[in-house]
Amino acid sequence: MNRIYNIKYTDAYYIDLSYGHNKKLHKTKLSEHEAYGYAEKYGNNIVIAFIKEEKDDRKISDKIKRKEHLIKGIIVPDTSILSKLTSFKRNIFKNIPLGSEVVVNWRDIVIVANQSRYDCSTMYTEGVFFRNEEDHIVLKNPETIRTYPTPVTNHPMEKPLFYVIPKSFIVDISPVNN
């Protein structure tokens, strides 16, 4: 983990109550994120260390065995890289009508400071399938739970108005069974 990388990626985000309840949602797009750091791919995660021990050149698998902390960095899904966003034009969205209640399981970026953590969070969101764009979806009235790592928590704690999720982050999407 010694090579210096410049990484461009995207992230999910939510639109909270401060936007205004009755306001029409503006055009949504994914934002461009960029980072410098010492990067290593670990499974389907990319670990970007901003700060590390000077002589540390061990692989992540060794660090996990030794329960070593990542001093400061971020962990992103390998599918969050900008060039990969539109290569995930998957059919899983095709048969789900807009306006229907859906459940989405997806992987989220995590910021780490002094934790023995080298993989992304797993999220579960229920909401109304509001928009289906080329590289992202929008869920209305979403309720999101972080299911990994434990403890399971709401994210955010207060329900936002919308959640914008890159398609490349999504593991699966299905209609809610009433």
Binding site: I4, Y36, G37, I51, K52, E53, E54, K55, I71, K72
Partner: peptide, 9 residues
């Protein structure tokens, strides 16, 4: 004694 390194702008 312990040294760290970081990279950025």
């Amino acid at each position: 004694i312990k040294k760290y390194k970081c990279v950025g702008v």
